[in-house]
Design a protein around this nucleic acid. Structure first.
Length: 355
DNA sequence: AATTGGCGCAACCGCGACTCC
DNA sequence: GGGAGTCGCGGTTGCGCCAAT
């Protein structure tokens, strides 16, 4: 198979990355060019001349459309791997490393494009809480997404939120915020998306189903959500529970939704004692196997937020339990509360209004 | 209209792990 | 065993875009 520039310039089709995301090649990096000129000017140093020659041979900076096509066509014919040899054989004046990166992060035909879905964001938050900055490991659970993409998402979006809240992204406070505020809202949004499409997320369902289940016990010193309850006809839970959980178990969506709703209605709270809140919780989840799962946590926590909004005593207790009092105040002070943009998942104002 | 500053993201870099001879 | 080459990961950089001023 040989791709021609005209066949991919529009960006559609098998290789959406080619020429689709850049209007044109960007200028090469400045520093190497400067170094090259300096070296060429010095005839007395053979070593430097050799380096200059190497620098001249190897291109750096943004990839051109022609280079993309060369790489794509070569891999289509010969397969990937042995990147240094590949770069030479394909006639690309690039390091094997650069070729590999370009292929894996941009040219691979199975790459997804566009913003992360709520499902994916939720999964990233959850997996990062378990594994930290193990981007490649996290990416392995998000089909079509690259570690680089996820890393960028974390650095730009998540850390931005932490910055807005004036707290460290690794702090307990921020982890609590993710757990109690962001993830429930994402779960809600994911459920809304699923309802709109009337199906669970096809790409993520296997990953979600592979998530460990079980609740941390109250004796662990961690928050416990006791979801071991009888079926209920209550339907007060967030829309996330019924739809998303249908992809988790063989139970009917109705039963599961009712279970989650009941779970949310009778939470048992104990204060977290461990600074590594999520990590410890994850460990506990892996050790135990009660009636608990990730989605029920998210939906139940969302319910806590919404139910708590109507009950000032409850608000106070939750805030006190989780050291959120001053921080919630900080939302107001920082002006975050004032906005109700649907894009701002941190808006407590929205949550309070949902009562 | 011009300037500025923040944001998002592609690409690069350094380093450790792995493989092969 | 060890040295060279290669690969893969996580951190960082730099540039284009765009909204705010």
């Amino acid at each position: 198979m040989v791709l021609q520039q005209s066949s991919v310039a529009g960006g559609a089709g098998m290789f959406p990355g080619v020429a689709a995301c850049r209007p044109g090649p960007r200028p090469a990096a400045k520093a190497p060019m400067m170094a090259k000129q300096e070296r060429e000017a010095d005839d007395e140093h053979e070593e430097e001349q050799r380096q200059a020659a190497n620098a001249e041979e190897l291109r750096r900076g943004p990839w051109t459309v022609d280079e993309d096509l060369t790489l794509i066509n070569y891999i289509a014919d010969h397969g990937e791997g042995r990147w240094n040899a590949l770069a030479r054989a394909a006639g690309l004046k690039r390091t094997g490393k650069s070729c590999r990166l370009r292929w894996l992060n941009y040219l691979r035909p199975d790459l997804k494009r566009g913003d992360f879905t709520a499902d994916e964001q939720l999964l990233i938050l959850d997996l990062h809480s378990r594994w930290g900055n193990r981007w490649s490991k996290i990416a392995a659970h998000l089909p079509g997404r690259t570690d680089n993409e996820i890393k960028n998402y974390w650095r730009t979006r998540v850390q931005k939120h932490a910055k807005q809240l004036n707290c460290d992204v690794n702090s307990k406070r921020f982890k609590d915020a993710m757990r109690f505020l962001w993830m429930p809202r994402l779960a809600e949004r994911a459920a809304a998306q699923h309802q709109h499409h009337r199906q669970p997320s096809p790409s993520l369902t296997p990953c979600i189903m592979g998530m460990p289940t079980a609740a941390p016990s109250s004796s662990s010193g961690l928050m416990m959500l006791d979801t071991t309850v009888s079926n209920s006809s209550s339907s007060c839970c967030s829309p996330s529970s019924a739809v998303t959980s249908s992809s988790l178990t063989s139970e009917s969506a109705h039963d599961d939704g009712a279970r989650h709703a009941a779970a949310a209605a009778e939470p048992v709270l104990t204060a977290p004692a461990d600074d590594d809140y999520w990590g410890a919780a994850t460990t506990m989840q892996q050790q135990q196997n009660d009636h608990y799962d990730f989605w029920s946590t998210a939906s139940a926590l969302q319910h806590l937020c919404t139910a708590g909004a109507a009950d000032h005593h409850f608000q106070h207790q939750v805030a006190a339990d989780h050291d959120l009092t001053g921080w919630v105040q900080g939302f107001s002070d920082g002006g975050i509360l004032s906005g109700s943009s649907s894009d701002n998942l941190w808006s407590l104002d929205d949550i309070w209004r949902m009562q």
